[in-house]
């Protein structure tokens, strides 16, 4: 029953208003940070490169997201670190 209703509600997400909202979210991030999507992507990659130089990270589980708190943009990084195997030097 609840699934059926959820399905009906989810049909809405194909509608143009959700497309508008999703696209606007990204556009506003770009406008507010003055970063293009490509620059944002290469910033994330460089960030990970620098971190990996010091610690071993689980690159598949990395999440770096731009979030909004009020009108403030925030870069949130969640970077799981692999247990140190105490590499012999």
């Amino acid at each position: 029953m609840a699934d059926w209703l959820a399905w009906l509600a989810s049909k809405k997400t194909n509608k143009s208003a959700s497309a508008a909202k999703d696209r606007l979210k990204l556009v506003l991030i770009n406008d507010r940070t003055d970063l293009t999507p490509a620059e944002l992507e290469s910033m994330k990659n460089e960030l990970l490169q620098v971190i990996s130089r010091y610690i071993e990270i689980d690159s598949n589980a990395v999440r770096i997201d731009m979030t909004q708190e009020g009108r403030q943009q925030r870069l949130l990084a969640d970077i799981p670190i692999r247990a140190a195997s105490r590499k012999a030097r």
Binding site: K12, K15, A17, S18, A20, K21, K25, Q68, R71
Partner: peptide, 19 residues
């Protein structure tokens, strides 16, 4: 249009603009 899901709601706009 809002009912059809073809126009942003006021909640959508407020969430985006945060004012």
């Amino acid at each position: 249009m809002v009912k059809r899901g073809d126009m942003l709601t006021s909640d959508d706009v407020l969430e985006l603009l945060a004012v």
